[in-house]
């Protein structure tokens, strides 16, 4: 009696419950997807800030090269160019701050998926969503490191112009300062590379996660 009459509806009912679970996860996934997209949208500002920083940095470098091409007899022009380079450097410090804030906003947006991720029932999907959060955390850590290094680098750069401005210029001391700047830049490039590796992983993980929706 049970086999013939009740088993088919029972099986159908179980299947419908399972599908109902899938449906629940799909809704969560959609919510998560929306937030991730918003975060990626916010990273456009992060890219734009970096583009602005790059333009300013190129101007600062060009001004440094121009300073080097002058002679000590061109003292007025020299002073004007040093002032100009220091101003670029100060503006770079501000733009770096903006860059970090843009990234932090995108980061905070990703963190808002936490409650939704906790509710996901499918273990594999949950793991993938958690992996995304972890990779964003790693990007955030590297960004903190990058910001600290860049700030120190700009302080060294500021110190360089103070040395060039001195009455009694000491070329050895200036070269030591430049060596410190270049060394700091090389260290920062390593952090940039690490950040970009995490970004690649994050983008791949995001693609994999959203592909399944």
């Amino acid at each position: 009696m049970f086999k013939k009459v009740l088993a088919p509806p029972f099986i159908i009912l179980m299947a419908s419950f399972a599908l109902s679970g899938c449906n629940h996860d799909a809704e969560l996934a959609e919510k998560i997807h929306t937030k991730l997209e918003k975060s990626a949208q916010l990273e456009k500002a992060f890219t734009q800030d970096q583009q602005n920083l790059l333009k300013l940095s190129q101007k600062e470098k060009l001004t440094y090269d121009e300073i080097g091409s002058l002679t000590i007899a061109q003292d007025r022009e020299l002073k004007r160019k040093i002032d100009e380079a220091e101003e670029y450097n100060a503006n770079m410090t501000q733009l770096l701050q903006d860059t970090k804030e843009s990234f932090d906003e995108a980061y905070r947006q990703v963190l808002t998926i936490h409650p939704a991720v906790n509710k996901i029932e499918q273990p594999e999907e949950k793991n993938q969503a958690n992996k995304l959060i972890k990779l964003m955390e790693k990007r955030h850590d590297e960004m903190g490191h990058y910001y600290k290094q860049y700030t120190e680098l700009l302080q060294l750069n500021h110190g360089l112009y103070d040395l060039i401005r001195e009455e009694e210029v000491n070329p050895d001391e200036i070269d030591d300062q430049i060596a410190a700047i270049n060394q700091a830049n090389n260290e920062m490039l390593k952090t940039e590379k690490q950040f970009n590796q995490y970004t690649n992983k994050y983008n791949k993980a995001k693609k994999k996660y959203t592909y399944k929706l």
Binding site: Q58, I164, T199
Partner: peptide, 26 residues
């Protein structure tokens, strides 16, 4: 689906030439 990617860091700082090689130093 997921048309936007997270952004990388663009290298924005270029190393400097030694001051001792400059015309100013000369």
């Amino acid at each position: 689906i997921s048309s936007l990617s997270a952004a990388p860091i663009i290298p924005t700082f270029e190393s400097k030439e030694e001051f001792s090689n400059s015309a100013l130093n000369q």
